[in-house]
Design a protein around this nucleic acid. Structure first.
Lengths: 139, 139
DNA sequence: ATTCGTGCAAACCATTTGCAAGAGA
DNA sequence: TCTCTTGCAAATGGTTTGCACGAAT
């Protein structure tokens, strides 16, 4: 069958990359996380040398396992659509909480806007900001 | 009247910031540019010390004159909606050309998705990728 | 056995900071 | 004049690289 981890292993193999403890661990940290993580957040969570975190995030991004997403003023990382259904994020200006957003219609509209501009769409990144319920009350 | 530059000057003044050659120049470089520029691109274009470019980009971002946009794998900078009508970008995976996108309906949908998720929307960033006409032919 | 990947130290380089001199208001 | 901003030099710190050892296939 095709669990995320099985797909991951196959994907590594087909790219002549080895499955190591470090990559296994990195993958599972990202799989379990409910929101994207910055390198800074990743380093203490993944038990491997920080240099390996950098290298593996890069390598896995190159082969499409990991996706870079702009969150706040810096980039964070999450598993690609290959492992998590395509979605977007909204982060609260007040408390920085992050929620997932999943809206079919937005996707369609984004792609059709790309086509209208003369492009064959290959992807996009959409990040939203707002004030969450809690922070609206606590003002 | 309210040309972009006049608004800029007023905005600086109301934030106790001085109008200097360097800021004037930075502002005009961004105003004339058809697409966002990275710090790296900005430094040779703006005739001031690179430290001042860093500082001014930061300061002007804090007071809402400049906006940071994720382009490709890094961030670039452009004037905020205060000076250029709100829009998004699509960049070609092949030649890196950037075009502007302006679609009212997407805007509405993005905001309504935010509301549905329980947030009062304050902003968003949307960057698209695709293959442009030229690059589709030249394959 | 043969790569490929890791850890460590060192190098790198983009960005930031401290401070004295210069410029705007 | 008074304060903000600039330029320069130096410090900083996140990221990358070189290399020998260790691990995966």
């Amino acid at each position: 069958m095709g669990s995320a981890f099985t797909i991951f292993k196959r994907h590594l193999h087909s790219n002549n990359m080895r499955m190591t403890h470090q990559r296994d661990h990195l993958f599972h940290v990202l799989l379990k996380s409910s929101h994207p993580l910055s390198i800074e957040q990743l380093i203490p969570l993944v038990d491997s040398h920080f240099v390996s975190v950098y290298r593996n995030v890069q390598e896995l991004r190159k082969v499409g396992v990991i996706k870079q997403v702009p969150l706040g003023l810096k980039y964070s990382y999450e598993l690609s659509d290959m492992f998590k259904p395509h979605h977007h994020h909204i982060s609260c200006d007040g408390c920085s909480a992050v929620s997932g957003i999943d809206d079919e219609e937005i996707e369609r509209l984004i792609d059709s806007a790309a086509v209208r501009a003369g492009y064959r769409p290959t992807g996009h990144s959409l990040e939203m900001r707002g004030i969450c319920r809690n922070c609206r009350v606590t003002d």
